[in-house]
């Protein structure tokens, strides 16, 4: 990215360097990307298994119902393992490296809480899985229509994401996800024609989870590009990149 050199007090003010380096570090969207991947996988797995169970239930095929419920449980266990295992974190680290590797590494924890996640957050995350399992079961055994799955999911997911964002003190971009997800649910309940119909009904669940999270992550990523551009602009203003380290006169003065 070309950074046009500019002069002026605003560009050489060190406070601008502090401001933009922190903005950049905070908007590298990796932690949110991790949570998004896990939540998307969870919802997709539960949704797909739920649909399979529903089809088997409608066809009165109890063998297939049991098989798909077992499959659902198994997939949840696989997902939990991925979320907690070293292998899962290595995959995420590779994605991070692929996204930001050439820019180098920067870490800022000033606004974030250190240490392991508190018990209430772990319990809320467990609750998220249970809530969606309950939803899948309700849908599977025809107690809830598929088009209500997203609003049912939003009842838990929206406040959960809000808590997550508040806890991690993420930027404004992160609020896009719960806001759009909650709004989508409200519009669906109010009967706005924003849902998929017929054989595409499962997309009513998939698209909001995948799409709104992705929009939020992209917004964070784009903001990090802007912050980096501003940071480079202020950090390079008036700096001669090829200037030799001419400290002799300074050294004499220091003695």
């Amino acid at each position: 990215m070309a950074v046009p050199p500019k002069s002026g007090i605003e560009l050489t003010d060190p406070r601008q360097i502090i401001r933009w380096s922190r903005q950049y570090a905070k908007s590298r969207t990796i932690s949110f990307l991790v949570q998004w991947v896990i939540i998307v996988l969870m919802v997709l797995v539960v949704g797909a298994a739920g649909s399979l169970t529903n089809m088997a239930y409608q066809a009165h095929n109890m063998g297939l119902v049991i098989l798909s419920v077992v499959l659902m449980g198994f997939m949840i266990m696989v997902l939990t393992w991925f979320s907690l295992s070293r292998w899962g974190s290595e995959v995420i680290a590779k994605i991070t490296d692929w996204l930001y590797g050439e820019e180098g590494y920067v870490e800022y924890s000033g606004d974030r809480r250190e240490g392991p996640a508190p018990l209430w957050l772990t319990a809320l995350s467990g609750g998220l899985v249970v809530h969606h399992l309950v939803g899948a079961m309700l849908f599977s055994f025809a107690y809830m229509p598929l088009k209500m799955m997203q609003p049912f999911s939003a009842c838990y997911m929206t406040p959960f994401l809000v808590m997550l964002i508040l806890y991690q003190r993420l930027g404004l971009w992160a609020w896009i996800w719960p806001t759009l997800y909650g709004l989508h649910a409200v519009l669906l309940v109010m009967g706005f024609p924003i849902g998929f119909k017929g054989q595409w009904q499962l997309l009513n669940m998939v698209v909001p989870v995948l799409g709104y999270g992705f929009i939020a992550i992209m917004a964070g990523h784009l903001y990090s590009r802007f912050a980096l551009y501003k940071l480079r602009q202020v950090a390079q203003a008036g700096l001669d990149r090829n200037a030799p380290m001419n400290d002799e006169s300074l050294e004499q003065g220091q003695g």
Partner: peptide, 20 residues
């Protein structure tokens, strides 16, 4: 100033940011 504003920074990031 860059190092004071964050916790850790690597050589590549400084190189890219400062353009030296």
């Amino acid at each position: 100033t860059l190092l004071a504003s964050v916790d850790v920074m690597d050589f590549s990031f400084l190189l890219m940011t400062l353009g030296l």
